[in-house]
Amino acid sequence: MFTVEQRDAVRDRLLSLAGGDAAIVGAAVTGSHAVDGGDRWSDIDLVFGVEGSLETSMRRWTELIYRDFDAVHHWDLPAGPAVYRVFLMSDRLELDVGFVPAAEFGPQGPSWRTVFGHPAPEKDVLAPSRRNLTGLAWHHALHAGVCIRRRRWWQAEQWISALRGQILALACLRLGHPTSYAKGAHLLPAEVTASLAGTLVRVLDEAELVRALDAATSALTTEISLVDPALSARLAPVLAAPPAGNDHAGST
């Protein structure tokens, strides 16, 4: 496991190398280190503004990171004009390097600290839509029920877990906390999270999955009722009803 000193040394060396790369016209630290300094387990998040071909710069930097920083694997996460190349190091350190065209180099939110270069003005970041979060939640609830009827225990558990994630996101949105990846879940009051404990699947059998799904749909309609009681009243009887039929064929 990497130490704080090792992680910080890697970050500082990468930024120094970026400063000497003619194709890198801007660099920024993002993520927790740009806001509150992170903690013992925080990874490295960087963004490079690239003049010229992204593909060429990404290839050169990938070779460098494997050669000089002992990377063992990487994968890409496209995000608009940027590509975030995510590396795993041999000491379990995660390194995320965003490569973005120079003209698009700039903050996408508050988690940004410019190291060098001239970033474009910050773009407005759209808040997640309550309507979409709610829609995903009832979608997941329906599919969980169907998977239980099809006796697909693992798939049903996956949908119940996904439903719980949407409930957490809705609660975080209501209370002004981060909504993605449960980043604001630890900030939720106990009365919110306590009701979700019952949504955890303890064993993969039909009775337990039905119990957990019932707890999740109840928690969902309770959460929705705090903002939109009429919608909660419309959804509750639909989600409480068992899925029709007992067809084990087909797919969700």
Rank of each mutant, 00 (worst) to 15 (best):
F2Q: 02
R7K: 10
D8E: 15
V10D: 02
L14P: 02
L14C: 04
S16T: 15
S16V: 11
S16P: 02
G20L: 07
A23L: 09
V29D: 04
G31P: 07
H33K: 12
D36H: 09
D36N: 12
G37W: 07
D39W: 06
W41D: 02
S42H: 05
S42M: 05
I44P: 00
L46W: 00
F48C: 00
F48K: 00
E51S: 14
G52W: 11
G52Q: 12
S53N: 09
E55A: 13
R59P: 03
R60Y: 15
W61L: 01
L64D: 08
I65N: 00
D68I: 01
F69Q: 06
F69T: 03
D70R: 14
W75K: 06
D76G: 04
P78N: 03
A79R: 14
F87Y: 13
R92S: 15
R92C: 14
E94T: 12
L95H: 00
P101A: 10
A103I: 11
F105R: 02
G106S: 02
P107A: 09
P107H: 02
P107V: 02
Q108V: 11
P110H: 05
P110I: 08
W112K: 00
W112Y: 12
V115P: 02
V115C: 04
L126I: 14
L126S: 14
A127R: 07
G135R: 05
L136E: 14
H140Q: 13
L142G: 11
V146A: 09
C147N: 14
C147T: 07
R150V: 03
R152H: 12
W153T: 04
Q158R: 11
W159P: 00
I167N: 05
A169G: 01
L170S: 00
L170A: 03
G176I: 03
H177G: 00
T179D: 07
A182R: 06
A182S: 13
K183Y: 07
K183H: 08
L187D: 09
L188F: 04
P189S: 09
P189K: 10
E191G: 09
V192E: 15
V192F: 07
A197R: 15
A197S: 15
G198N: 07
V201N: 04
V203R: 15
A207T: 13
L209W: 04
A212I: 01
D214W: 03
A215K: 07
A216L: 08
L220F: 14
T221H: 08
D228Q: 09
D228P: 05
A236C: 10
A236P: 03
A240I: 11
P242F: 13
N246Q: 04
N246F: 06
D247W: 06
H248L: 13
A249C: 04
